[in-house]
Simulated assay, not measured.
Amino acid sequence: MMRNGFILLTFCAALLGCAVAPAQERRPIAWDGLGQDPNKSPRRLHTAKPRATNPAPAASDPNQERQRVLDALRPYSEAWWAVHDEIEAENDRKLGTKLVICPRCVQPRQDEDVTGSTR
């Protein structure tokens, strides 16, 4: 019985040692994007009151007019596809401005055709 108690105590002490980190060591936490970011410092208690400002006028969406034209055209006609492709290109351009890709992750473009064959 004494031996089992000693083994259990040793096991618990080992787990406790793994779970406790030094107080001065602070590493960033992986954040899934939901809720508050745990890596940001806590906000101050005394925050400035929000000021009433006039909201900036919304930039006109070029796809709104294209969508109206698209709705007026016969579905799947050549003109419909042309307007549809313009809408998709604009959506891709907007996404490209928001999307951030690590420069190391993107392979440089090669203009010549490269194959994996050996001589």
Rank of each mutant, 00 (worst) to 15 (best):
T10Y: 07
L45K: 09
R27C: 10
A21D: 15
H84T: 08
R3M: 03
C18P: 01
H46G: 13
N63P: 06
P103F: 06
M2L: 11
T10P: 03
R51W: 01
I29P: 00
F11H: 08
E90S: 10
E88M: 07
P38H: 02
L70R: 01
S60A: 15
R68S: 07
V20I: 13
A13V: 02
T53W: 14
R109L: 15
G17E: 14
T118M: 07
W81N: 09
P57W: 08
W31P: 11
D32K: 00
A13I: 05
W80H: 01
S41P: 13
A56P: 02
W81E: 14
A14C: 04
K40C: 04
D111G: 10
A21I: 13
D61W: 03
S117K: 05
E88A: 11
T53Q: 15
V69Q: 06
E112P: 03
G35Y: 05
F11P: 00
R93P: 01
P42W: 05
W81L: 04
L95W: 07
D111R: 06
T115M: 05
V83T: 03
L45M: 14
K98F: 11
M2Y: 11
R119D: 04
G96C: 06
C12I: 07
R43W: 12
D113Q: 05
P103D: 07
L70E: 04
H84S: 15
P103K: 09
S41M: 11
S77Q: 00
Q36D: 14
R44L: 14
P42D: 01
N91L: 15
L8M: 06
M2Q: 12
Q67C: 04
A79D: 02
A14T: 01
N91K: 15
E86G: 03
L95S: 05
L73C: 03
N4E: 13
L34R: 07
A79V: 07
N39L: 06
A23R: 09
Q24M: 08
